[in-house]
Design a binder for these strands. Sequence first.
DNA 1: ACAAAAGTGTTCCTCTTACACCCATGA
DNA 2: TCATGGGTGTAAGAGGAACACTTTTGT
Lengths: 248, 248
Amino acid sequence: MSLQMNQSLSVDCAVFGFDGRSLKVLLVERRYCDSAARLDRLKLPGAMILENETLPAAASRVLAEATGLREIYLKQMEIFSDPDRVRGEELEWINRYHGIRTERVVTVGYYALVKLDARVIAYTDDKGAQWVEVEAIQRLAMDHKQILSAALTHLCREMLQSPVAFELLPRKFTIRELQNLYAAVLGIEIDNRNFRKKILGSGFLAPTGEYEQGVAHKPALYYMFDKAAYKRAVKAKLRLGFINNWRY
Amino acid sequence: MSLQMNQSLSVDCAVFGFDGRSLKVLLVERRYCDSAARLDRLKLPGAMILENETLPAAASRVLAEATGLREIYLKQMEIFSDPDRVRGEELEWINRYHGIRTERVVTVGYYALVKLDARVIAYTDDKGAQWVEVEAIQRLAMDHKQILSAALTHLCREMLQSPVAFELLPRKFTIRELQNLYAAVLGIEIDNRNFRKKILGSGFLAPTGEYEQGVAHKPALYYMFDKAAYKRAVKAKLRLGFINNWRY
DNA sequence: ACAAAAGTGTTCCTCTTACACCCATGA
DNA sequence: TCATGGGTGTAAGAGGAACACTTTTGT
């Protein structure tokens, strides 16, 4: 065996959004049309990395193109390096499109968290992209289902350790929305009283004083995430306890 | 900007070992000699990926070469993609050595856990590699210090969530060795009584009946990790609790 | 009036933490 | 006999989990 020179590096992004009920991911159509009727005609947005571009930069570029947003929460997760993960017509298309002669595409999986608002939805609609309920996705192009699964796993883990949930919610949200988000991502049921106790007791949520309007039930109070309070609490916690000053 | 074609992919491995006291990592000499006296003449073992080789396969290959071992615990962590992370004489050396013309080397960081025994040490000594105390490492070649730091962070996180500690210990070990390992990796102090209570209470440790010999104090009992018991407990735990059946 | 979700407390129990002394061995 | 680390128990407190009813609004 020898060194592989005709290889390319790409990034693929699982962009998650939350509509108050269920977790969605942004999917786009495969760009070559030979088999448009195929079940796996949808894929995650992605791109080849450019000369002099870091991977995070490439991922940001993909996200800006796909959503119109900058400053998105973005995290690297795994690399998918099966030599045959892209082949056949897909590989031919890539070579034709870019005018290159690559034999292998290694991809770096990222996941991104987006606040799903009207502007983003208008933008993605306009681009022909779709927000699809994660639970409903059976298959995707190439190994993108696998990449999506990995992204979900990483998101679960992250949600249990840091307050990334707020990246998926609008600036103002109700406790119930937050709870639904945790339940949807983790795939669990959560007791509302215990959840409130815990989340309000943490002191990271600041009430806005505003209430829901036009709902056919007692209107809920809107809260915001108090990032400063969160950081203060983390710092304080790092200074005490059984495990007091670890490395990460 | 255009697609980057003259790029290469490599893997670099932080191989950790534990000698009962402190955490060590395996370092090798940079292979070109122009500046042998430099402080950062040591690096993590690594290699370019070969044609038709997956990244995990490449990492295994590097580990087999460096330690003589197969079946090592191995985990992918992050990718280091700064376009200038390898440049100058290092890049020239790579091109000369492989007879290629690459302009950029993106590397995938792995970490590995090894049971440090006489055979491994003999093998690595023979190869001119060194086991260096992690705490003492100030700088390494290129961005390898950064890769090492990332590996440590990942190892910490992993140790708090799964029983990888046993990958670093001999088959038979004392509770104190296990405790020292946790303390060394996490960089914390641990109360011996609480540690015993927790670790023995978990039921994952099986006493061997053998005792230390030739030590100038009460000899300690040797234990082994009972993998089957661990798996049973994990399965049982997944079926109950507040968070009962999540995705990962 | 009714449907629908908001909001609120208590009890039990487990797990975490802090803490001090005697024991077995080799030198 | 001394130095060294092995091995043991308890009490107080914090946090997790299970559980049901009243309130407010729109229809």
